[in-house]
Computed example of a mutant assay.
Amino acid sequence: MTKTTTEPKSTTPDVIVRAASDPDFRARLLQDATATLAELGIVLPPEVTVKVVENTPSVVHLVLPALATEELTEGQLDQVAGGTSGENLDSASELLRTLMKEHNDTQMNIIKNI
């Protein structure tokens, strides 16, 4: 797994706020999310793909989580993420988890309001 050498300069809310207010950044994020996030110090492992889509008044994206076949222990999660048992996940993996949770929370709020 690729490890970041520094802490990310931005967090998920920073990325979303900037995408909402900076059309050039938004376009780059939609075009190549991995490279755009890397500009902010957010380096993802090569096996992780981030796809950014945008909702419109007539199209709402509903993202389903991957099906889990069984619950993994923290040690197994560390190994799958490229670390070793007992080590903390690197900041990119933590950011990815945060992104997924925030996205799922947002989707649930949209569904409640439909």
Rank of each mutant, 00 (worst) to 15 (best):
V53W: 06
T98Y: 03
D78Q: 15
H61Q: 09
P45Y: 07
K101N: 12
N109W: 05
D78R: 15
V53K: 14
L37E: 01
G41F: 01
A81S: 12
I42Y: 02
A27E: 13
T98K: 13
M1H: 06
P13W: 00
K9W: 03
E102K: 14
I111A: 09
L95Q: 05
S58K: 13
T4Y: 07
A19F: 01
G41C: 00
F25P: 00
M100F: 08
S58F: 09
G75T: 09
G41D: 00
G75V: 04
E71I: 12
E7Y: 11
P23K: 03
P57V: 01
A66G: 14
V17S: 13
T106M: 11
E102Q: 08
D22I: 03
T73Y: 05
L62I: 13
N109K: 11
D32R: 07
D32P: 05
I111R: 07
E47W: 13
M1W: 08
T49E: 04
A33I: 01
R97W: 07
S91C: 08
G41I: 00
A68F: 01
V80A: 14
P23V: 05
L37G: 00
G82K: 01
T4M: 13
M100A: 15
N88P: 09
T98E: 13
L77V: 09
T56C: 04
K3P: 07
D90M: 05
I16G: 02
E47M: 12
L40A: 02
K3I: 12
I16M: 06
L95M: 10
S91N: 13
L40S: 00
G83N: 14
N55L: 01
K51Y: 03
D22A: 05
E102N: 14
S21C: 06
N88I: 08
V17I: 15
L62N: 09
L89T: 09
D105K: 12
F25S: 01
L95H: 04
L64P: 02
E71C: 10
G86F: 01
L77S: 10
I114S: 10
N109R: 11
I16T: 06
E54F: 06
V59L: 14
L72F: 08
K3N: 15
R18A: 11
M108Y: 11
